[in-house]
């Protein structure tokens, strides 16, 4: 069994470093792959070609997704992920500095599983993200197998 993969999609290197450090420090063992913008993430997930998916694409156990990124933004990535049957069931945690209600609502409408506000955690840099990673990677059971069995259908948005 291949190790779990966490796909972190984040353009800010500062944030990437803090998050990776926090996860490692918290003992998250999953492999952490980083996409530096939406386009890169789509390519890594094999969602860049319509109607053609790679034979053995990477399928992460969870995705941490920044919203504001160059080229392709987080919402578009979210839409693509949910549009593909293969990745539709992957938990997506949105990370954003904006707490605008419309941003939060849109994220959930597009199929986000969680919306985390980027903030400074007085307990330690990125501690809340390590907790989130722990939850989504280890505690939460994704409906991946169920998706295959029951032909998982997307909720309308």
């Amino acid at each position: 069994m291949s190790p779990d993969v966490l796909l972190l999609i984040e353009d800010e290197l500062d944030h990437v470093d803090v998050i990776v450090r926090a996860l490692r420090k918290a003992g998250v063992e999953a492999e952490i792959l980083v996409a530096r913008d939406g386009q890169e993430a789509i390519e890594m997930l094999g969602l860049d070609l319509a109607d053609h998916e790679p034979a053995a694409p990477m399928l992460p156990r969870a995705i941490f997704l920044d919203l504001k990124m160059p080229r392709v933004d987080g919402w578009e990535v979210l839409q693509r992920v949910r549009a593909s049957r293969r990745t539709a069931a992957v938990p997506v945690v949105v990370l954003s500095a904006s707490d605008r209600p419309q941003d939060i609502q849109r994220s959930y409408a597009l199929g986000a599983n969680s919306f985390l506000l980027k903030r400074f955690d007085p307990r330690g840099p990125g501690t809340y993200l390590a907790e989130a990673a722990h939850y989504w990677l280890e505690l939460n059971q994704p409906p991946a197998s169920a998706a295959e069995k029951f032909h998982w259908r997307l909720p309308a948005h």
Partner: peptide
């Protein structure tokens, strides 16, 4: 405002994080 909330908050948060690190 949105820009400020996102762009200004992020680096400030990063400063705090790196100070903590």
């Amino acid at each position: 405002n949105y820009s400020v909330s996102h762009d200004l908050r992020s680096p400030l948060g990063a400063i705090l994080n790196f100070v903590a690190i």
